[in-house]
């Protein structure tokens, strides 16, 4: 899209040139985004666009790596070798998604280390859903079916996001997420059709994960601070409430096929709207968990910090080795 010199592109500001040039760049950018052209790393972009993308991509990457924890919690207890292999592969995929997303964010002039520091210090967030605990094996299924299902609903439109590297990373991520969602559904189906105790385990997990999953789409449209600008920039394509409705419409018939009940007596088909109606979400809980008062906020971030701190000597060793063995090569490149 907009062709500019790399220096202008990486500085990201419009003040370096004349006011006229800045206005022209901005107008070109807006026109290109409106025409659904992709923004690439070396293109000029408004500083707020860059910052907004970094915030969103970092939060997404952080969610992938924090999201490994509640599921890894069950790897060592998986009840069959087939399930164990599937779960390990899924948690591995999440680490891989974190890698793509941090790399995509690095194209905006930040670094993985910088972003991890912000996660560890609480300056950047991850999806609040991972502040809920996985208490039984069925929770692994509920996370796959509901949490990954909600994530896919949110993420498929990002494959058409205006920022090229993010959009391309999302194409691959969404393919894998769809496998994750299916394995969750299939896991729950096996439990639901299994023994009485297994069925009860599945129902209990769905009871606990349903409402937090609906909260994953973020606050209602009239309370969402970033939505309007993100939509204008084509980073976001649909509003929180639209996506939430889409998810409910998909999940309700799936719950029926699973033989499980969603914990909301107000769910019913609305012929006039062509959608399922559903009950009121407890937003007080959402804001409370977001503020740090969920059941696992402290545990998740502590484990992440501990892994990072305990791994420091390993990363230092790898760096020292690379410096010894590539010698002055790096300096020449720089």
């Amino acid at each position: 899209m907009v062709a500019v010199t790399p220096e202008t592109g990486t500085s990201g500001g419009v003040d370096g040139g004349s006011a006229g040039l800045g206005a022209q760049l901005r107008a070109d950018f807006d026109a290109a985004v409106a025409a659904d052209e992709r923004v690439e790393p070396r293109d000029w972009m408004p500083e707020e666009y860059r910052a907004s993308l970094v915030r969103q991509m970092a939060q997404h990457a952080h969610s992938e790596i924090i999201g490994m924890q509640p599921e890894a919690n069950w790897i060592t207890r998986a009840p069959s070798l087939r399930r164990k292999a599937i779960l390990m592969a899924k948690v591995q995929d999440e680490a891989g998604h974190g890698l793509y997303l941090y790399s995509a964010a690095e194209t905006l002039g930040t670094s993985r280390d910088e972003l991890l520091d912000k996660l560890h210090s609480g300056k950047q967030k991850y999806s609040s859903i991972f502040n809920y605990p996985t208490l039984t094996w069925a929770d692994v299924g509920a996370i796959g079916w509901l949490v990954d299902g909600a994530a896919i609903t949110n993420q498929v439109p990002i494959c058409r996001c205006s920022y090229g590297p993010y959009a391309r990373a999302m194409v691959r991520i969404c393919k894998e997420e769809s496998f994750h969602q299916r394995q969750g559904y299939e896991l729950l189906l096996a439990l639901s059709k299994g023994t009485e105790a297994q069925h009860a385990m599945a129902q209990d997990a769905v009871d606990r994960w349903w409402w937090p999953s609906l909260m994953m789409f973020g606050p209602p449209d009239d309370e969402s601070v970033h939505s309007a600008q993100a939509m204008a920039w084509r980073i976001k394509r649909h509003s929180n409430d639209e996506l939430r409705q889409r998810f409910v419409d998909i999940a309700v018939p799936q719950a029926e096929s699973l033989g499980l009940t969603l914990p909301d007596p107000d769910i019913k088909w609305n012929e006039e709207r062509g959608h399922y109606d559903f009950g009121a979400i407890d937003w007080a809980e959402f804001w409370d968990v977001l503020k740090g008062n969920g059941p696992c906020n402290e545990q998740r971030i502590s484990q992440r910090r501990r892994a990072h701190e305990e791994g420091a000597w390993v990363r230092e060793a790898a760096t020292a080795y690379a410096q010894k063995h590539t010698g002055t090569g790096r300096e020449v490149e720089a």
Binding site: M88, A95, L99, A307, A312
Partner: peptide, 11 residues
């Protein structure tokens, strides 16, 4: 899983 020193090692 979830405890590795660097993301590449998780993978």
């Amino acid at each position: 899983a979830g405890h590795a020193p660097v993301l590449e090692e998780e993978v």
